[in-house]
Amino acid sequence: MLADLWAAYQSSVGFAMVNVFFALSTYAVLSAGVLSFASVSYAAFGGFIGAQLVLNTGISPLLALPVSAVAGALLAYAVALLFLRLDGHWMALASLALVLMTRVVVLNAPTLTGGVNGLSLPVDLSLATLTVLLLLLMLVFHRLSGSWYGIAVRAVREDPAVAASLGMPARRLQTIAFVISGAVGGAGGMLLAAMLQFISPDTYFINIAFTMIAAVVLGGSYHWAGAVAGAFVFTALPVVMQAVLPQIQDVANGAALLAIMVFLPRGLIDPRAWRLRHAR
């Protein structure tokens, strides 16, 4: 009975884990005070390059994963150079524009992406592998948050001017955040490709952009664990609503999201609330 339940929902768990990659990619820049949707573009870049590598050389998707991460990181570095000059609001709009452009580029580069036909990627990614990868990623974020970098980016997010006066160069730290975001996003793109076993221009589009930002904010954008929790909740929400309220599942999804944000505006996991409780 339990085995059946697990079999039924294991792919949902798999998608939730992949969504954690996307959420952490978004969190990486958000923790440095930048709202960016560009993680979708890193995912597309990493996903298509990784898929081509696997298809052309027959290597294991695990070996392609670092290549996808590097590809994502390089794109993110270029994006940081171009976009970080912009004011916060413009940065958000610009990254949204980048997502729209990504789809056009994917459609018009059929040798890399398969164009409208998409790419079939018959690989098998076990849930155990995915779990190990996810634990590694969480360990990295845990170590980062306690490092000098982690403290510095939090300062940049709270007040860039103060951070700068303390010798924390905002632009440089944000560029590092972008590169981290790109690497995680690129790897996430490859993992999504392996989960779906078929990718097309519609795979990496606006839906993922809004899903990942919603997951981060829902989970709590002030701690990396918030992104993890948010991705799991956000993936589980439609599955639960389908089982409970199949007729109006989309409306119920929206209402649940709205309710969480109105009653828990800082998200499910809020380090400030913990500190306050400890202080008491």
């Binding site: 059946d4 339940l5 697990w6 079999a7 039924a8 929902y9 294991q10 792919s11 949902s12 998608f15 989960m195 779906l196 599955v239």
Partner: peptide, 10 residues
């Protein structure tokens, strides 16, 4: 894909 896995498990 998630729907299909649920069917397969049943």
């Amino acid at each position: 894909i998630q729907d299909m896995h649920q069917f397969i498990a049943d």
